[in-house]
């Protein structure tokens, strides 16, 4: 029986469709464990080898990965929410009520999007704090730190634009208070607020703009920045815990 399974397995991984799909063998040996990292779309974000220190749970706490996972969950649940939601001041609120009461798993869907958004903001902040305290912004990672700062700001904007969409009292007044901060900029403040809201106060034009920003612009910006951020992590040598003191350099400095 065991032999039969092994034979079958062997047949599958040596078959033409398998070899056409995966250009590496079963990753149980050093060569294929290297190839899987260089040949597969997902794993190419990773180095072939990592420092044991960098995978210790208490080093990075996985905060960057959790933030990315939240972004993926938000994208998926967000698409489903778009199926049931019309960004109109007449309909939006009642669409949400209908979603929660009539649509199967509608309430769960909305809950996951709401709590996931809060979680993403929180983990993005904690990720920045972790990166700072571990000194992971030091050269050659300066630019990735700056991309990270912009990612945090984009995350704020993503969450903030989504806050208005349920069109309830909480949403309306939070956005009224939030956008009023822009008016305190002495030169352009009023103009900035008008551009954001599409008028002097929160109304249909604001809902349309926030919806467009929330479902299209911000996710696109986040996607591009995240891709750039991950690529930079890889190019800068993985997590900073992979850094090893350069013995030759130390020798030369003495």
């Amino acid at each position: 029986m065991k032999n039969l399974l092994a034979n079958l397995w062997e047949k599958i991984v040596t078959s033409r469709p398998w070899k056409a799909t995966f250009r590496y063998g079963l990753p149980n040996n050093p060569l294929d464990r290297s190839l899987i990292m260089t040949e597969s779309l997902f794993f190419h974000l990773h180095p072939v080898k990592v420092n044991k220190k960098s995978i210790k749970p208490l080093y990075s706490m996985g905060l960057g990965i959790i933030t990315t996972v939240m972004f993926i969950i938000l994208s998926i649940t967000g698409i489903f929410l778009m199926f049931y939601y019309v960004p109109s001041t007449e309909l939006a609120y009642f669409d949400i009520v209908k979603l929660q009461t009539k649509v199967p798993f509608g309430q769960l869907l909305r809950n996951m999007h709401r709590w996931g958004a809060h979680a993403m903001v929180l983990t993005a902040i904690l990720h920045m704090v972790r990166v700072f305290y571990t000194g992971a912004y030091k050269p050659p990672r300066e630019i990735n730190w700056i991309i990270g700062v912009f990612l945090l700001l984009a995350t704020f904007i993503g969450s903030f634009t989504g806050y208005l969409l349920p069109w309830d009292q909480l949403a309306f007044w939070a956005i009224t208070v939030g956008t009023s901060v822009a008016t305190y900029e002495p030169l352009m403040g009023k103009t900035i607020q008008k551009i954001l809201l599409g008028g002097p106060e929160v109304g249909q034009a604001s809902l349309t703009r926030f919806y467009g920003l929330h479902v299209m612009v911000v996710p696109a910006v986040l996607f591009i920045l995240i891709a750039f951020h991950l690529w930079r992590v890889r190019k800068d040598g993985g997590l900073a815990a992979n850094e090893i003191p350069d013995e030759m350099e130390a020798e030369n400095d003495n």
């Binding site: 809950n111 996951m112 009292q169």
Partner: peptide, 16 residues
């Protein structure tokens, strides 16, 4: 996230 979402509902107040 799923467990938390099952336990606690997202807030929805009256119409704006």
């Amino acid at each position: 996230l799923i467990l938390f979402s099952l336990l606690k509902d997202a807030p929805l107040e009256e119409l704006a």
